[in-house]
Design a protein around this nucleic acid. Sequence first.
DNA 1: CAATTTCTGTACTCTTTCGCATAGAATAGG
DNA 2: CCTATTCTATGCGAAAGAGTACAGAAATTG
Lengths: 212, 212
Amino acid sequence: MVQKSVPDVAKAGPRRRGRPRAFEPETALTQAMDVFWRHGFAAASLDDVSAATGLNRPSLYGAFGDKRALYLQAYGQYRKRVNEIFQPMFAAREPLRVKLRRILVAALDLYLSGEDGPRGCFTVLSAASDAIAEPGLQALVGEAIAGTDRAFGLLFADAREAGELPESADPRRLARIVAATLHTLSIRARARIPRAELLPIVDDVVITVCGA
Amino acid sequence: MVQKSVPDVAKAGPRRRGRPRAFEPETALTQAMDVFWRHGFAAASLDDVSAATGLNRPSLYGAFGDKRALYLQAYGQYRKRVNEIFQPMFAAREPLRVKLRRILVAALDLYLSGEDGPRGCFTVLSAASDAIAEPGLQALVGEAIAGTDRAFGLLFADAREAGELPESADPRRLARIVAATLHTLSIRARARIPRAELLPIVDDVVITVCGA
DNA sequence: CAATTTCTGTACTCTTTCGCATAGAATAGG
DNA sequence: CCTATTCTATGCGAAAGAGTACAGAAATTG
């Protein structure tokens, strides 16, 4: 079998040879992300993506591959953007209670964002999707979940070391509780449960982790 | 507009007049539930449901209406079955710690069930689905989530009254933490995270609620 | 400027899928 | 036994959707 020439995504070399792209792959991926994030893999058509990006299907195909490959890259774009948003918040020098609440409220507002109603967390959606049967998506979603557990685990380990949590606190256990909170917020947001009923859940977990 | 004769689902009157059904609606709904639970609304075709139930599409149509109505009824069937499973567990007279763990492990195993891989919680899937845009599904999912919160809230309120929890415990806060745990278990199960990594999460929450 | 390479856009094919029309089968009532 | 009623089964029709062929456009290289 001949090696199928995989389209190199956004591999912005020094200068490509023929006619240049009339679009930025990053921008298109972000727009595709919006479509998949809202509708999910199966319910989103390539025509929807085409309309959102302003690109014709052959252009999408040439740049990103088929629908499955496009979804994976759009989800990768989501992860990248989310990391860019939250890394500074994790790195900030604030009291644990403040920092934790700030992160959770930011996540909640991310889940509530969307022009046509709350979209929840793209990772949660991907896990719930039919496409999760595919190993490639399983790997990405697994990484994302593990990464969240790890990030909060480090946060709490540092806090314990700094005396903001008791010695008896188990950072990994606390991290999983917070991750669970993110998941429940995502589900409830998508179910159109209003923000006013979701904020108390944030306060719940802050109390659970940091005490009353 | 003329009233469209809505097919009465499983309304087993004394005797219907013409040719009787060659199938039990309850059974068919359970089989339809399996299909939607695994694939989700958009990715499941009526041919899939037809194959799973052994019924032709016109029969499905006649009995349950269109795809959307069928999904709602299949999800209703899920809720009914889940309630039948868990109500006795909530009613059991056991120490809180034992009862809570039993319920959570049962839920986990429900989420891990499925012939072709773990399916998670149908409620979570429905919330993540594209179909959640529809008010009818929003209402059902909202009820299901609120019902879970309420059931655990009552459980913890009773436990506090029985002295199994300190007076300072907040039943509603604890209930939401447990519900969050169910949601995270559902997501992680569907992401193919192995049972051995999920059981510690159950223990986490038991410790969080009941103490170490 | 000519040749080559790469991207864009129209339009096409093939498949899937929803929904339904219609004919035949099975049962109750008279 | 005959008719009315309801269910089953084959199969049609219309639409959507994924992927691609091909011609034209726009850039680089020589």
